[in-house]
Each structure stands twice: as structure tokens, then as C-alpha cells.
Design a binder for these strands. Sequence first.
DNA 1: CTCAGTGCAAAACTTTTGCATTTGC
DNA 2: GCAAATGCAAAAGTTTTGCACTGAG
Lengths: 123, 123
Amino acid sequence: MKGSNYSSKRELIYSTLCSTKSHPSAKWVYEQLKEDHPDLSLGTVYRNIALFKENGKAVAVANILGEERLDGDTSAHAHLVCKCCGKIEDVDMPSLTLKGDTKGFNTDFVAVTYFGTCTECSE
Amino acid sequence: MKGSNYSSKRELIYSTLCSTKSHPSAKWVYEQLKEDHPDLSLGTVYRNIALFKENGKAVAVANILGEERLDGDTSAHAHLVCKCCGKIEDVDMPSLTLKGDTKGFNTDFVAVTYFGTCTECSE
DNA sequence: CTCAGTGCAAAACTTTTGCATTTGC
DNA sequence: GCAAATGCAAAAGTTTTGCACTGAG
């Protein structure tokens, strides 16, 4: 079964994903690792990230400039996304309760994202 | 300047986008219109949607199965996204206040998205 | 006339996949 | 040995773009 075996590449990818607060893309993770691990394929990065998402060990935060941006920190927190430079930062999650008719929907993750402009881009 | 001239195609694309609560993709909008307007290009749909997003007349709700899903209704409301079938539904927006250090961030839009499983997919 | 908008098709990109090979157990 | 994981490269799919033409003002 998928994900059942140990894999050093997987560990590497996961720790790289968790090592930053920049909410990176798959390509970024790949590029970070490529230097020290020339034998690493982009396909493997994508395959493992898909696995992390399935297992709830990572979350897709936003799609910026055509790239899916990820977060290895799945604790409840919200995100600030700068429309201008693409930077993504963390903020505390506001308390919220699902309102309105939820049609029997079974929620397992809530994303709160503030889109706007960061200080540097506002200048 | 971009968007300054009237364009019947633009009107068509915008009204199609607003005519549904299905939160469609660009391709869906294109396919709806293609039948009655054989002279319509997918590029035009993408170009106009980009314009709507710039002008705040439309919002990207989520990226499902590699497709960006849109909403022509920019009033404050949250979304339920079914991970299983990709269906997106509207719910009332919970009241929320930005908490934590927002680092001077200038917010102009807040997205609240509940990921989970809809009734049909739960069966 | 001038510049915005469009069709068409090619290009650009990200993400996925098939297959042969390697690795974990 | 068997099934999972990977590299590599090709494929798939969405989105963007260049260019010549059309349409609005």
C-alpha cells in the first residue's frame, strides 16, 4: 500500500517542506533539495506531496501564479496572501462557526485566507 | 486601456459566469457559450476572466482537479468544497476579525473555505 | 484613425504518468 | 521475492501569448 514503506527521499521532502514558513511550491522544494541530492526527481516530489495531502500531513494553501503553494504546518491558522508579490504569511485563526444550511456537508478542514497587499508592495 | 471598450463577448462571458451557482471553470464557461456562439475563443474567455478578477468582479474560489473554479458573486460568503466530487456550494460567511500580528497587511478580500465531503459522496 | 478586443494556434508551464530499475521489508 | 518508491522522460491539461484582423469610439 502507498506510503507504507520507509523512504529517505520522502523524509527529505517532508522536512524541507516543514523547514520553512514561506509556504513553498513543489518546484521550490525540489530546487532546495536538488543541489545536495542530484538524484531526486521532480516527479517524486509531486508524488510525495500528494501523499502528504492525502494523509493530512500537508495542505494546499493557495494557487499563486499558477503554482500550488503548500504548508506542512496543518495546525489551525489563517493566511495572508499578497496579490502583488505572492508572499504568504501566517496569522492566528479567527474563531468561526459554520453558519447557514450546510446540506449535511462533512467538514474536515477549514481554510481562511486574506488576500491583499503586504507592506513592501504597498509602498 | 484594458477593459475600457465595450465588448459583447465580455458581457456574454460575465453573464454566463454569474448565471450559475456551480462555481465553474473557464472551460465550462467557454463550453456553455460555444454552442450558441461558435465564434468564441477560449483565449478570450481566459483574458476576460483575468480582467474580472483584476476589477474585483469575480473571484477564484478553489483549484479543483487542476482547474481554477470561479465565482461571479463577490458578496461575502463562504464555500463548501467536496474533495470527492469537486462540487462547490455557498454558505453564509461566519463573522470574523483578523487576529494576530498582521504586519501592516492591507486586506481587500477574505476567503473562507470548508473542505470535506458532501452528502452524496458520504454514502 | 487609433487602440482595445478577438480568433487561432502555438507556446509555456505545472502536474501526472508509464515503465524500467532500485529499495525496503 | 514482492510490493513500494524512484528517475527519467514523455504526456496531459490548463493557462498564456504572439500576431494578424475586427470592432468600438
